[in-house]
């Protein structure tokens, strides 16, 4: 058992990161290659100025009209995406592990704050699931895999929360926590999670077309 834990906290972490980075690199590279061979014209319309203008406009909460039209969804969505990265990166126990193995460290979140933020992430995911079940236009578009994505994101947060409080099956919780965390990382390049990288790219192109050609705002 200890050997298994050593594996998932050691080599498997490296493997997961390797698959993640290699997967992201290969996908972005192939995308650029395909654009270059079939739709080269896109590069001539691309503009850093208007790409960044569009991306920044959409990063400012409640600047785009769409975000003002659905403030509850957007409020939760902005917060969720922020916390999704912030909580694991600034969690004290993660930083301690990293310092023990690599000697790296940075500022950490107070544990009780991190605890509350974890609950917020889980609640946001519950909100997304409930929204998929209840809002007709979202329900019409939803597929079973969308719930699976929500579950995959929820598991590391839920098990992390349970393990921290040591409510029950501490060891099992830690193992599931590590495994699902790694699973999520591995899945990013091969699933819809990849919107993490594609969204800024498609926003940038739309921003470029709107700014450069149509001379209009796109938010």
């Amino acid at each position: 058992m200890n050997a298994f834990i050593d594996f998932i906290t050691g080599p498997m972490v490296w493997i997961s990161f390797l698959i993640f980075f290699a997967g992201v690199f290969i996908r972005v590279f192939r995308l650029a290659q395909e654009a270059n061979s079939k739709e080269k014209f896109m590069f001539s319309y691309f503009s850093w100025k208007y790409s960044l203008r569009s991306i920044f406009a959409w990063l400012v909460p409640f600047l785009p009209a769409s975000t003002r039209q659905s403030p509850v969804f957007w409020g939760i969505s902005y917060l969720f995406h922020l916390l999704l990265f912030m909580v694991p990166i600034f969690l004290l126990s993660h930083i301690v592990l990293l310092e023990e193995s690599l000697g790296w460290s940075w500022i950490s979140l107070n544990d009780s704050i991190a605890d509350v933020l974890t609950v917020l992430v889980i609640l946001a995911l519950v909100f997304f699931a409930v929204r998929r079940l209840n809002v007709p236009e979202v329900k019409f578009l939803t597929r079973s895999s969308d719930y699976l994505f929500i579950l995959i994101v929820a598991l590391p947060f839920l098990t992390g929360f349970l393990a921290y409080h040591q409510f029950f099956f501490y060891r099992t919780m830690v193992i599931i926590h590590i495994l699902t965390g790694e699973l999520m990382l591995i899945l990013i390049p091969f699933t819809r999670f990849f919107h993490m990288f594609l969204a800024p790219i498609s926003r940038a192109y739309t921003g470029s077309e709107f700014g450069n050609v149509r001379q209009a705002r796109d938010w």
Partner: peptide, 30 residues
């Protein structure tokens, strides 16, 4: 079609936010 089409197909998170933009959706009682 190429990279653009694939990106659009693969990026949509089916969030439904586009619905409120569409006059057809709004004119047909959502």
């Amino acid at each position: 079609t190429g990279a653009r089409f694939k990106t659009y197909i693969d990026t949509c998170m089916r969030c439904g936010l586009c619905a409120d933009a569409c006059s057809f959706f709004l004119s047909n009682d959502r």
